[in-house]
């Protein structure tokens, strides 16, 4: 692979700008993940396993698979997302790489946003594979409303990752580490999962897109507010 030119890296005397350092951190995390493939493989294995288990957790003669599909989809997104989020800052822990990141001439907001972009890429990749898998295995014809459905999924991914990245940064440094992340993050996932799952269920039962507009607005409002608040809050989780 051709190494791309990062602004700042070639000019050691000049510190990289905000956008450049954000992208450099996102790229670093994505490269680590691409080379180790530790999270993506376990998250995908989890997604497929969960799909199978959920299918047999209900009586298919009593509940139609299409009624289960929205719930299964969002449970899978939530928990596979948590798997990846923990690694986001966990990957820096064993070698204390976080100290080096903090010593680098990049702003703390850029560290948060870089991690957030990498996590978003990871979550979207898992969604891009599990959404067709649910459609295929649960026999849901998604063709008619695939674009609004992707819109709902992407908006929800931003909200989940915004709060999840911040709590991942906090959880890894505590004594409970990965056990704490779901405890902190899940209550914050409620206003994302709830409208997203309701919108998915309505789309899958063939309702008009205008019927889910309220849910989409709620998701967008959550995304904007929590992106801003979490970016501002992240520097406070670091030692001053």
């Amino acid at each position: 692979m051709q190494p791309s030119v990062l602004p700042g890296v070639l000019h050691p005397r000049r510190a990289p700008g905000f956008v450049a350092s954000t992208l450099a951190i996102a790229r670093k995390d994505m490269l680590i993940e691409l080379r180790s493939r530790s999270v993506i493989l376990s998250a995908l294995a989890f997604a497929v396993l969960a799909l199978t288990i959920f299918f047999f957790a209900w009586d298919p003669t009593a509940v139609a698979p299409i009624d289960l599909a929205p719930g299964v989809l969002w449970v899978i997104f939530t928990f596979s997302g948590l798997l990846g989020l923990h690694r986001s800052f966990g990957v820096e822990q064993p070698t204390h790489a976080m100290d080096a990141l903090l010593a680098a001439p990049v702003s703390r907001e850029a560290i948060y946003l870089g991690k957030l972009i990498a996590n978003l890429g990871f979550v979207i990749l898992v969604q891009a594979i599990s959404l067709p898998a649910v459609a295929l295995l649960y026999n849901v014809p998604v063709g008619a409303y695939v674009l609004p459905l992707i819109g709902v999924v992407l908006l929800a991914a931003v909200g989940l990752v915004a709060v999840g990245t911040l709590f991942s940064a906090m959880a890894v440094t505590t004594r409970l580490a990965e056990l704490l992340l779901p405890l902190l993050a899940l209550p914050f996932f409620v206003p994302v999962i709830l409208p997203a799952a309701q919108a998915t269920a309505r789309l899958m039962s063939g309702r008009a897109v205008s019927e889910v507009a309220g849910y989409i607005e709620l998701l967008a409002a959550f995304d904007i507010i929590f992106l801003v608040v979490c970016t501002l809050a992240y520097p406070f989780t670091l030692e001053q």
């Binding site: 709060v163 911040l166 906090m170 902190l184 209550p187 914050f188 409620v190 206003p191 709830l194 409208p195 709620l218 409002a221 959550f222 507010i225 929590f226 608040v229 979490c230 809050a233 406070f236 989780t237």
Partner: peptide
Amino acid sequence: AVLGILGAILVPFIHLSV
């Protein structure tokens, strides 16, 4: 403190979504 503030912002969202 960070969790306390985020929680206060979350409450109206939970209220709206439910």
